[in-house]
Design a binder for these strands. Structure first.
Length: 200
DNA sequence: TGCCAGGCCCTCTTTAGGGCCTT
């Protein structure tokens, strides 16, 4: 992939944004020309408690969040870092709703589309044992990036997966693999993927 | 009171149900 894309990952206190679900950490990896050219990572304090199960999962504790900068400032910095760059995430429907929610808390709004490495890997890597980010990373022998379930390590894992998906796609289609083409591919049904690749 | 995510995708489907994936 030649164009610049921002791969994003949130750690949160729950599944749904709102009173019980707030972001606790954000990690962003900027890809350009198929290589990582910049990184953004920060814990963020939204004034909520981390449930024990989530603390166990992510290693992010209430003590760590008490010392973290306020969520609104972190989101403004993250939005400035991303600008209008197209976004990518693994299971983007999850990160998109937290990105939109946390931006809305500081009166900002998203301007770009999300591509989803989960939808794309289901279409391009149907033979994988499952489509969890960690499984795909091991299965495709992608580089280890650090502790799973920390935002920057997961964003970097998703970035490596995106590059792998781009290479897989480039072998089957004639057009350059762009964010817009990935968004088109993720919108077709799995059965129509071979036809889509032939036509592009 | 009782509920408690939601979008995607497959199939023993489409007047539906259940599993996957994210924290």
């Amino acid at each position: 992939m030649i164009e610049r894309v921002a791969v994003i990952d949130f750690e949160t206190t729950g599944i749904t944004p709102g009173r019980e679900g707030r972001a606790t950490e954000i990690g962003i990896v900027m890809l350009e020309g198929g290589v990582i050219v910049d990184r953004f990572q920060s814990l963020m304090n939204a004034g909520v408690r981390v449930p024990p199960m989530i603390e166990q999962l992510t290693g992010i504790s209430n003590a760590m969040l008490r010392a973290a900068p306020p969520a609104a400032g972190v989101m403004r910095d993250a939005a400035n870092f991303v600008g209008r760059t197209p976004l990518v995430a693994h299971n983007a429907s999850f990160d998109r709703k937290f990105w939109d929610f946390e931006l809305a808390q500081c009166d900002l709004a998203r301007t770009q589309d999300f591509a989803c490495t989960l939808l794309l890997s289901r279409r391009l890597l149907p033979q994988a044992p499952d489509h969890k980010l960690g499984t795909l990373t091991r299965w495709a022998a992608l580089p280890a990036t650090g502790r799973a379930h920390r935002a920057l390590a997961d964003a970097e894992m998703a970035a490596n997966l995106l590059l792998h998906l781009g290479q897989t796609m480039a072998r089957s289609c004639r057009q350059p693999v762009t964010h817009a083409l990935l968004c088109k591919l993720q919108a077709v049904t799995a059965a129509k993927v071979p036809q889509f690749l032939q036509q592009h």
